[in-house]
Design a binder for these strands. Structure first.
Lengths: 132, 132
DNA sequence: CATACAGGGGACAAAATTATCCCCGGAGGA
DNA sequence: TCCTCCGGGGATAATTTTGTCCCCTGTATG
């Protein structure tokens, strides 16, 4: 049986369980799968493009995690990072062309979620309520 | 500071870290976040609607995990389960109306992934290759 | 001096998600 | 009898993803 090994050395994420790289859905998940990645992309597209601003826009998250996820988005060339070598330091993110092509998808995700939010929310809130 | 507690007892998933339930993206992620959920939904929409067929269609997964994810999709009323009390047992899934509204999104996710697959794949494969 | 801000990240802990293994009932075929 | 198929799931381990804590460079301000 064939075993995918796309990481002989570990650096950041050495996945030990190989994914089917031939599936579009899996590929998209690879990009948008992170907890805050969709939010980051949407925010950046709206002009919220600096690390501190992004963190304020998504206060439930941590600087740390946002940085990690931004790095991955950059790695997949969905966003670009501009570093201004100044003091105090200044950094700006922006969508790449590839990133722009994700926007319709993200907007749809957001819309679907908004439309179904009341219901989804109630399911989450009632998960164990009945047993109480 | 306010603390969301939407689960006083544990049953299936008692998330200890509360999510912002006011965000559409987060809601959608709650539905489609599972590793194989998008694949399951797409497959079901294509008529691959029985547990064993689904498992064959997604051989990288496990029966176990598929069952778990199907159960969650059912919980959020995105799919419905019909049990035929026969021997051998027979079960069929189908999309609900709510599930149907997800299809455009899923198709877009799939398409985007297909279009960008060569690139994404190369990024994944080259992650640590350089250091070798 | 202490605090705040800008941006960044190592070390480690905890939580959440998936995988592995094995068992169940009951029917049918070699 | 043994193996296969249908569908299901408990117990537990492994993997992956997030979170916590603390420290770093420098400037500015109270």
């Amino acid at each position: 049986m064939l075993t995918f090994v796309y990481n002989t050395k570990k650096k950041m994420y050495e996945k030990k369980i190989p994914l089917p790289l031939e599936c579009g859905l899996v590929m998209t998940r690879e990009i948008l799968g992170g907890k805050w990645k969709p939010n980051l992309l949407l925010a950046i597209s709206e002009g919220i493009n600096r690390p501190s601003l992004l963190h304020r826009a998504i206060p439930q998250s941590t600087k740390r995690v946002l940085n990690l996820q931004l790095k991955e988005l950059e790695e997949f060339e969905v966003i670009e990072k501009k570093i201004y070598h100044q003091l105090p330091p200044k950094v700006e993110y922006r969508l790449t062309e590839r990133g722009e092509t994700l926007m319709p998808l993200l907007r749809q995700m957001n819309e679907w979620g908004e439309k179904n939010r009341p219901f989804i929310k109630s399911v989450i809130l009632n998960r164990t309520k009945t047993t109480e």
